[in-house]
Design a binder for these strands. Structure first.
Lengths: 131, 131
DNA sequence: AGTTACCTTTACGTTAACGTCAACTTGGGT
DNA sequence: ACCCAAGTTGACGTTAACGTAAAGGTAACT
């Protein structure tokens, strides 16, 4: 009785294929304490929850986050804390993350306008060659 | 007669202070061929152009780009090319960069909504403690 | 019984992006 | 003349994030 979570499982290469990473990478994330799959004997068995975590890690990676940073983001996921002070700390972290993301947004927008300008110059150079 | 570019100059530690990096980092970017400051004897002298390049490198870094990627972005800056084929290649690169940035935008938005949810759960947990 | 396809652990190798000395030189104050 | 701050060039060290064998286990075909 866990809220109807689809309890599918995945092998390591299932996930590797789906997210286009190597199995080594996935095992590495486990070494780093980011994933804790169950086992059938030796063999790792991944649940949907593991899969979500992996997805979060890789999303973080695309944004240039280190594993440590992604770990923090993932830990924000469940406020298991029963301690008010820790909850305040968690909110502070969430706020920090927001600000970091905001900076990235700004950076992306700047880059986009610069790409616009770059393309404009490029097109201009092409027009001159055709003249 | 170069379009009224302010021709200020900077020492290496001027830039280091301004952008909060070490001088080693700046020299490293030069080793990597990203900066080519003039010299007064031994001493490096940075122009506004160098400063802009450094700014671009660091912006790329905040977005998780490698130096190689930032180098490509910087090279898009002036279409010095007199060759039509190269200009087409340049446009293709620009387009690729656009798509990468678009992916990052999506990732950021997803993260932001997840941060919203995380904060909501956090606040919820805090309310329960006060009950 | 043999091969194939995955899975495992252990362990050393690699690359990027710097950090960290060490051993200079150089221009400016006192 | 002496010192100090800021600059320089090597050159080796470090960390993160995997890559890359090596050596072996296991279940399923054929």
């Amino acid at each position: 009785m866990n809220g109807m979570t689809k309890t599918r499982t995945y092998s390591i290469s299932d996930l590797a294929r789906e997210f286009d990473v190597t199995t080594r990478t996935i095992r590495f994330y486990e070494e780093a304490g980011m994933l804790l799959p169950e086992r059938n004997g030796q063999t790792r068995i991944y649940t949907d929850e593991d899969r979500v975590k992996l997805k979060l890690i890789l999303r973080g990676k695309r944004l240039g986050f280190s594993l440590a940073e992604s770990r923090e983001l993932i830990e924000m996921y469940d406020p298991t804390s029963d301690n008010l002070k820790q909850l305040h700390a968690l909110r502070a972290k969430i706020q920090q993350s927001r600000e970091a993301l905001q900076q990235q947004l700004t950076d992306i927008q700047l880059m986009q306008t610069e790409l616009d300008a770059a393309e404009e110059r490029c097109l201009e150079a092409m027009r001159e060659l055709e003249s």
